[in-house]
Every structure is written in structure tokens, then in C-alpha cells.
Design a protein around this nucleic acid. Sequence first.
DNA 1: GTGGGACCTACAGCCACTTGAGGTTCAAGT
DNA 2: ACTTGAACCTCAAGTGGCTGTAGGTCCCAC
Lengths: 153, 153
Amino acid sequence: MTAPFMSIGELGRRTSCKVQTIRWYEQVGLLPAPARTGGGHRTYGQPHLERLDFIRHAREFGFTLDAIRALLTLSDHPERSCEEVHALASDHLAVVEDKLRRLETLRIELTRMTDACRGGLTGECRILETLADHSHDRCASPDHADGMDIAPG
Amino acid sequence: MTAPFMSIGELGRRTSCKVQTIRWYEQVGLLPAPARTGGGHRTYGQPHLERLDFIRHAREFGFTLDAIRALLTLSDHPERSCEEVHALASDHLAVVEDKLRRLETLRIELTRMTDACRGGLTGECRILETLADHSHDRCASPDHADGMDIAPG
DNA sequence: GTGGGACCTACAGCCACTTGAGGTTCAAGT
DNA sequence: ACTTGAACCTCAAGTGGCTGTAGGTCCCAC
């Protein structure tokens, strides 16, 4: 079924993860350093595959690497309460919901702005007017959003 | 009304922009280098204030600095067609709408995941199971989101 | 003249990678 | 045995949009 020893390239293919990213996960301590061939090439086994699958899936859910580190530690201790896991997940959900709210506000404002523009010259462009607007009157909320990075493709 | 010469600190106060950020905008060519006092301190006038206001407002709308650079160039030529301005804005709107869709998918999946967890031990935690899930069956879409940064606070 | 806040430059750090340079190893084919 | 050339290796720098720090200088009120 599964080869007991994989090259980094094959591991990458199986997990849809770039080779450089795998090396980087190793560097930051998410993935344990694997055995090497005589020539220095990394060789991976099933546990590495599973761990990397976990990491990639968690990244798709938008968890930060710090959160994933914590989740991996927790999953290494099956006898503990899963309270902390639940807390990590619901904290992350709250972050996502907050970003959604900010983005939705942004979408509304952007739509209003672009809809106001009916062509013509930049000198009388409503978009530029809105952006230059000193009074900020047309802007509903002052704070829209900040760090919005969610997950890798 | 407005002082003809402002220190960087005063400009920052009037635009709700940190002093370091102003210096950084100068460094990357968004704000023209201002005059200096004999001792080397920057002194700003009304045009700088307006330009920085434009930048900050555009950042609140989530435009990238590259897009803002383009918008500023366009607004420096009031006789041009505002077609390009409209294109920049609607491109950005499309990006925001795309991010919204991805985030909404993410929210649904995260909610489903956290709802599935009913406490207990990590060894039988549904959240960890979902993340470790080799088959990825429970995951509706494979690509959720990537760079999601929107605007500064 | 003195105190201290505001200013200056230059550089490191953040996140999660990505890209590039320059060199080595491996496996397949001859 | 030898030759390709793809895959691998390490190390360093770049991405975006700032933020923070260190170590020094300037300005203004007292």
C-alpha cells in the first residue's frame, strides 16, 4: 500500500505540499526531522505523511502554525480532555466570523463607491472623491479589517 | 486654519497614521519627500496632508499600496478618463467578494467541525479527527482561501 | 543651560511561505 | 562504467505592510 520510505518529492505529491514548504515545516519544528540517505536526502515514513496531512488540512481551515503546533501536541496525548482543542477551534471560528463581518462592511462600501462612478474624467470621478474625502462622511465604520490571511491555496 | 508647516508627529495625529508608517510611505514612494528643517526634521504642508489622507482612506478600503500608487497617479491627471480608476476599484471589489466567498465556506466548515465536538478526550475528539481525516471527505471544497489581508486598523 | 519629548537613521521582526543561486546525489539509459 | 538530467541539498533574500528597537540628535520651554 504505502511505501515505508518516501522521498521529499513523493511526500509532497501525496500531501499536495510543496517541497520547500515541507522543509520549512521541519525548520520551524512542525514536522520532525526525518532520517537521511547516505547522500543526505530526506526519507519519510507513514507517521510523517499523517502528520503533514494533519498540518495541511488544518492550514486549509485557516489555523495558524502556532495553533497547529498546539493541536498536534494535544493530539499526541489522547488521554487529555479535548477542551483545549475545542477552545482553539472556537477561537479560530470567532476570528473568521470577525473577518467576515469586516469584509462584508467593506464590500458594501466598495460597491457603493464603484456604483457612484458613472464614467467621465478623473477630475470628477466619484471614486477618487470618496477616497480623497477629507471628512470621511460617506464611510460608515472607521475600522474595517486588518490581517486577513486565511490559508494556503 | 491649517498650519503651512507641520511636523511628522502633527501630520500623524491629523491623519491617524503612525509616524513610522509615514516615513515608510515616503520610503516606498507613496509620499513625496518633504522639506527639512536645518536640523533634519521633516516639515509637511497641506498637499502632503491631503495625499496622506487619500492613502489612509484607500487603505481602509483595502486597496494595496500598488493600487493606491496607481490611483494617486490617476488623480494627478484630472483630464484623463476615469476608466482605469473604475477598473482598479471593481477589480478590488472582485477580490473582496472572492475572499468573502472563501471565508463563508470556511466558516461553515469550521462551525460544522466545532459543533461535532461534544467534549471528552482528545483521543476521540471529532475536531482532531476531522483535521487528521486522510480522505478529506468532510471537506466540501479543496481550496478555501489564501492572502486575506484587507486593511490596517 | 538643561531636561525631556519628539525627532532622526538603520536595521530586525512579523507570517507563512516563495524564489533563487549554486552545488550534490540519484536513478535510468547507453 | 559513464552520462545525462531531474531531484535533491543548503543558505540567503524577498513578499506585504507595516511595527518595534537601538542608539543617537534636535527643539523648545523653563
